[in-house]
Design a protein around this nucleic acid. Structure first.
Ligand SMILES: NC(=O)c1ccc[n+]([C@@H]2O[C@H](COP(=O)([O-])OP(=O)(O)OC[C@H]3O[C@@H](n4cnc5c(N)ncnc54)[C@H](O)[C@@H]3O)[C@@H](O)[C@H]2O)c1
Ligand SMILES: NC(=O)c1ccc[n+]([C@@H]2O[C@H](COP(=O)([O-])OP(=O)(O)OC[C@H]3O[C@@H](n4cnc5c(N)ncnc54)[C@H](O)[C@@H]3O)[C@@H](O)[C@H]2O)c1
Lengths: 220, 220
DNA sequence: TTGGGCTTGTGAATGTGAACACAATCACTA
DNA sequence: TAGTGATTGTGTTCACATTCACAAGCCCAA
């Protein structure tokens, strides 16, 4: 086992996160064990990638059998310091913001939106999903009183850098932004931009230049 | 110049797409040239990465000066076979679907949603954004009559694989899905899943284990 | 026309991740 | 208890991406 060698490669941690959802599906289906081959087919990766990734987490599998699904998920979550009760604030209750607030699955997955803000007087005070929209003026104060860990920014593009800066100054350094503008974002916050145009452009490029090649370790 | 050596690394193509938006911002700001150092600062990558990426596209820069922004964008778009008039269909006019249909920027960026479908009788016939919602029964026929290249799937998770299969059978092999379930998707379509929970989990992980290290080639 | 200051383009070195192949190990059966 | 079939864990190899470092080349001014 390589566990304890201090650090897990970033590609591995990114993949470890992506294993959790297929594993949950397998659990719901009643599987108690899963082989690297089976999981690899679901995730469209090479089985040896799976085995090496898991080797960073610890000695998890049983030779000849596979990995215990429950034990595996627990170990991955622990290795990733997965927070099952993450507290999130949303800024901007427009089209996107409303959809997110009404999305119940986030709560079931451990992502709890506990406050929503807007600066439009017509929206402040209205109830969307389970929350009452608050005045964006109170953003900094509420971030601290609620111990917010992550802020979702769904305001018009022109306002996004300013909101991100305020969020960063208030002590939160994780921002998920729907504004595709990565420019002018502050350095002390880590921003993930959900850029659908970018994803669509990459998608059609990769679709046209198909390269369906896989190694010989048995990946479908 | 390395251009013409047959193939561009996938990491490079993914980055080339991501350069387009900062370049557009620079253009709007009035910059006619940009140096690898400046663009690198905006994109938070190493300048030598930028220079090598561009070397795959062709001889684009001027030593001592930098790259011409307009010429650069044209060359990148050509290398990526960028389609400025992509025809898109949307399936599922719920919370997410409605937000996408009312989002006007897609059209300005060359991504044109030309048809929207739902199977709920109350939604069929209603106008959302600029489109009249059509019956999902007509999906296959309309995909072909409109020459759709990409389909956005925003239906409940349980329906997503079925819709993806129908889309694939109708000849479209690019699907952008908001259902986080990559399982059971057909093999002949390339699916990009927008999984916000996954992004949030990765984001907070990377935020807590900060590693703000950059090479010495001058990146900020 | 020469020189100085920049920036590109790229060979070479370095670093890193993926793939392979196989010994080690387990469950199960007779 | 030994044998069989399956699967993990990992040493090793390979391939590729990143970074460095610098010569080549451009602009401009004197
Ligand atoms: N709707 C989409 O499908 C879509 C797709 C891709 C990207 N985006 C981007 O996502 C962002 C939000 O999109 P949307 O469609 O929800 O926009 P929207 O206009 O519907 O909503 C924006 C909301 O933010 C509020 N707001 C504005 N300034 C604010 C501030 N300073 N503080 C707090 N609240 C403020 C507004 O009152 C409004 O309610 C935009 O940047 C948009 O470009 C949207
Ligand atoms: N809303 C969010 O913020 C959010 C966030 C993450 C993921 N998602 C996912 O995105 C998907 C859509 O989310 P939503 O909130 O828009 O859901 P929604 O329930 O608001 O809308 C779904 C729409 O799809 C239609 N539909 C159902 N079956 C269909 C079929 N077979 N063909 C055509 N149309 C059909 C329904 O009539 C409805 O209008 C879901 O899978 C959800 O899990 C949503």
């Amino acid at each position: 086992m390589i566990v304890g060698s201090g650090h897990i490669p970033s590609e591995t941690t990114d993949r470890l996160f992506s294993y959790l959802r297929p594993l949950m599906c397998l659990l719901n289906r009643g599987s108690d064990t899963v082989s690297s081959r089976e999981l690899a087919r679901l995730c469209k990766v090479n089985p040896s990638v799976i085995r090496r990734d898991f080797s960073y987490v610890g000695n998890l599998g049983t030779r000849g059998v596979g990995y215990g699904v429950v034990e595996l998920m627990e170990n991955i979550r622990r290795a990733l310091k997965f927070d099952d009760d993450m507290k999130i604030a949303l800024v901007g209750v427009g089209n996107i913001g409303r959809a997110l607030l009404e999305h119940v699955r986030f709560g079931m997955e451990g992502f709890k939106i506990v406050a929503a803000f807007d600066n439009n007087p017509e929206k402040i005070g209205r109830t969307v999903g389970r929350l009452v929209v608050e005045d964006a003026i109170a953003l900094e104060e509420r971030i601290q009183s609620e111990a917010i860990q992550l802020v979702i920014v769904a305001v018009p593009e022109i306002c996004a850098p300013d909101v991100a800066r305020r969020v960063g100054d208030a002590g939160v350094n994780s921002v998920l932004s729907f504004s595709p503008c990565g420019l002018a974002m502050p350095d002390n916050v880590r921003v993930t931009c959900v850029d659908l145009s970018l994803e669509m452009a990459r998608l059609v490029y990769h679709s046209s230049s198909r390269d369906g090649a896989r190694g010989k370790d048995g990946a479908a």
